[in-house]
Nucleic acid binder design. Sequence first.
RNA 1: AGGGAGUUAGCUCAGUUGGUAGAGCGCCACCCUUACAAGGUGGAUGUCGCAGGUUCGAAUCCUGUACUCCCUACCA
Length: 895
Amino acid sequence: MKTLADRYNPQDVENRIYNWWEESGYFKSADQSTKPPFSIILPPPNVTGFLHLGHALDHTIQDLMIRWKRMSGFNTMWLPGTDHAGIATQSVVEKELKKTNVTRHALGREKFVEKIWEWKHEYGDRIYGQMRRLGDSCDWDRATFTLDAGVSEAVRKVFVSLYKKNSIYKGLRLVNWSGPLETAISDLEVEHKQIKGFIYHIQYPIDGTSDFLTIATTRPETMLGDTAVCVHPEDERYQSLIGKTVTIPLINRQIKIIADTYVDREFGSGVVKITPAHDFNDYKIGKTHKLEFINLLTKKCEMNENAGPYKGLKVADARKKVLEDLKSLGLLVKEEPHINSVGHCSRSGAVVEPFLSEQWFMKMEELATPAKRVVESGTVRFEPESWTKVYLHWMNNIEDWCISRQLWWGHRIPAWSCTDCEKTTVSETDPTACEHCGSSNIKQDEDVLDTWFSSALWPFSTMGWPNAETHSVETQKTFYPTNYLVTGHDIIFFWVARMIMMGLEFKKDVPFRTVYIHGLVRDSQGRKMSKSLGNSVDPIEMIEKFGADALRFSFLAHLFSGKDFKFSEQRVEGYRNFMNKVWNASRFVLTNLQDFKAPAEGVKAMPIKTDLSVFDQWIISKLADVERSVHDFLEAERFSDAATTLYQFIWNQFCDWYIEFTKPIMTSGAPAEKHATQLVMAQVLNRTIRLLHPFCPFLTEEIYANLPIKGAACIVDQYPTVQNDKDLLAFASKQAEIEIDIVKEVITAIRNIRGENRISPAVKLKIRLGVSQADVQKILNHNHSAIMTLARLEAMEIGEDGNMMKCAVALVAVGTVQIKVIIPLEGLVDFNEEIKRIQKTIEKLEKDVSLLNGKLSNEKFVQNADEDVIANDRILLQQSKEQVISLKDALTRFQ
RNA sequence: AGGGAGUUAGCUCAGUUGGUAGAGCGCCACCCUUACAAGGUGGAUGUCGCAGGUUCGAAUCCUGUACUCCCUACCA
C-alpha cells in the first residue's frame, strides 16, 4: 500500500482516472440486460460552443443520478449529443468568413455549408473534452449529432407525416423577422426590452374638409404602409367620420376610416393608424376588415419600392426622414416621451420587424391536447411542481409554430415545388418528379427547419427511431421513455413541451417521466452572467484551480429546488477544502492500516459486538443514519440535503470525533482492540467513499484504489444502503450513541471553560466530574482516557463534587443525565473571565426558567400540548432551576 | 396587465406534519496538539419584510400589505 500525498491534488488524478474509467467500459450501457434500465438524454449543447457554468450545473446533477443508479445496480444509459444550433453556428462561421472579406452569398450555399462542416469537425469535440473534465460518465458510444443521418431520417419522417395529416402547412403570415440574419424567428426567440422613445402625434387631412384627424404612433415610418385608420365605433368624437377617407401625408394615398372595438378611446387621440403588414395587432384588424397589406421592407429590413421616396433607407433612418418631412409640412403636432417594449432578436440583438412572408407552420393545438393531459395526470411530473402551472398556462395559449428559417445550416425542408403545376411535393426521399403532374421541373424549398424541430424528436431520434434494425428497436424498448430530463427553466417551451408533444405523437408514449428543472447560474450578486458585464466564469478554469469534484460539490450542496444558483468562487474553494479533508482523513486511516490485513470474509470477520469499542459502535450507528438519510434524500431529489448530510458526517463526526477517539487506541491500544478498530475504520471509510462517489467521483475513485477492502472500481461498486449493508450496521448500538453523547458534551464543556478563560492548550488541567448516578460514573470511567486526551487533562476524578472553592463550573445535561464539570482555577488564571462566563450562563438559564414556568403554569398549555412536549419541558425546567442554584453557589466561592 | 417565486445572522441560504431559530463563508480570541494551517479549539451575531387573525403556542397555517426578482402578454 502506498501512502497518499499530504494534499489532494486533482491535477494528478482527474485525467488518469477518467481515461481509466472510459477504457474500462464503465460508462457503457446494454440494449439488453437483466438489470433494470435507467436512462437520461443529455440536453445537447451547441456543437461549436464552450461548456459554461450552466452546463456544468446541469451535467453535475445528471451525472450524480447516473452514478448513483449505476452503483445501485441499474443498467444506466446517459446519452450525450450536440446540437447543430442553426442560427448560432451559421452566425459564428459567417463572422469568421467576414474576417477574410467573404460573404456567404459570395461563397454560395454549398460551399458555405461545407465551411460550417469544416468548422464542426474542428471544434465539435471540444465540448465533449470539457465534459470529460467535469467527470460526465456518459455512454460515448451513443453520442449523436443533430445532423447525423439517423436524426435526419427521423426529421424527414416526422415532417412528412405531419404534413400529410395537415398539421404542417405553408402560409403567408406576419412573422418576426431578423434583418441581419435575413430569417424568420419564432415568438420564443424574441426578447422584449423596455426602450425609451416617443409617441408622435401626426395629422392626417380628412378628405373633402380642411380638418385633420390626429393619430398617435411610435413608429411614424410605417404610415407609408397604412391601409386604414381606425376609431372606436361608439366614440362620439369620430362617429360621423366612419366610412369617410383621409389622405396619408407625404405619399398622398387615400385610406378609409374604419371602426373597431379594438381601439381604446382613452389612449392617445383615440385614433389608430392601421399598418397590417407591419404590426401584429394591425394584421388581425387587416384580416377582419379585409384591408390591403402593403409590405414596406426588404429582407434586410430596408425600405422597399412601396416606401416611395424613402426607398433604400434603413428603418431608423426612414423614421427620422419621415419626421423631418412631417415637421416641415406642419403635420407633426406633438412628441411625447414614451417607454415601450421593443422586440429584439435573441441571436443578433437587432430590432425584430414584423414581416409578411411565406413560411412553414406547425399547428399546435391538436398536438398540445394530449401533451397537456399527461402533465395534468402526473404521467410527466415537473420538479419543482410549480412549473406545472407555467407549462399548462403556455400550452393553453399556444400559437402555431413557425418552423421554417431562411438559413443554410440545418435540416432542409423536404418539400419540392413544381415549376409547371406549382404544386408541392413533400417526401421522405428526394423525389425526381412532381407527384401531382409528373413533371421533373421540381425545386427543393430553400429553407431549413428551426433547430428546435430536430430537438423535439431527440429522445427517440437518438435511439435509432424510425429505423427498424434490431438494435434500434431494442434500445428504444429498453430505454424509452427515459427516466429524467434535467434542464433549466429557460427552455421549457422551446424544448420540453415540444418533446412531450412529439413523443406522444410518434412513440405513443411520453419521452420522460420526470422533468427536473434547476435554476440558472448567476453571479454572486444574482446578476446574469454575460460577457459584457465581465462576470462570467469559465468552469474549466474552476476545475483547474480547485478540481472538478470541488466544483461539482459546490453545485450539489447548494442546489435548492429550482431556484437560481448564485455562483461564488469562494464557495468552490470551501468545498476544495472539504475534498482535502476527505483526502486527509483517508490518509490517516490508511496510515493506521499499514500493518492491517483485510480479512477475506470482510465484515463477517468482525469480532462480536461487545468486543468492539464504544467508539466503533457509535460511528457505525452514525453511518447507519447517514446511509438511511442519503438514500431517502436522493430518492426525493433533495440532492443538497444528501450532500450536506455526507459533509457533516465526514467532517463533524468522523474527523472531529471518531478519528480523535481512535488515536489513543492506534498508538497504545491492546492488539485485539487495535485490530477491531482497524477493521471498523477500514469498513466505515470504504462505505463513506462509496456514498460520496456520485458527488465527487475523482477523489473517491483515487482513494478507493488505495483501500485495503475494495472491489474492481468504486464507480461500479455497490451504493451502500441500510438494506444491503446489514452485516456491518448490525454492530450499531443505541447505548453507544448515548454514551458518546455524554462524553462529547463533557469534553466540549471543558474546552469551553478553557477557551473562555483563555487557558493555553499547553496547560494540562486537573478536573473533577461531579455525578451521583452510578451508571453515569461507570460510563465516564469507561471513557476515562478519551476524555483525558481530547480535553487535554492531567488528572480527572469522578464522583463527589468535593471542594468547589475557586472552581470553574459547567453543567452538562444529556437527557436525564446531569454532570457537574469542576475545574480548580487557583493559580491558573484570575477569576474575572470565569465569573463573567458563569453570570452569562445564569442569565440565559433564568430566561429559560421564566419561559418554561410561564408555559407550564398555563392551564391551557398543559391541557392541549402533547404529553412528551410537556414532559420534556418539565425536565428542562427542573434541570435549569438546579443549574441556576449550582452556578450561583459556584459564584459565591470566588469571594 | 396576468402568472410564478422570494423576503430568516454581515453574505449565500437551510428550516417537510406548528413546540424556546440552524449551516457554510466572513468576523473575534487562542493554538504549528504527530491526517489535514486548504487545519484545530472556543466565542459573538437574528423583534425570521410589515400588520392583523387562528392557536395554549406561529419563521412555519390564514388574510391583508410593502419591497425584490422572473416569466408571459402588451394600447397605437
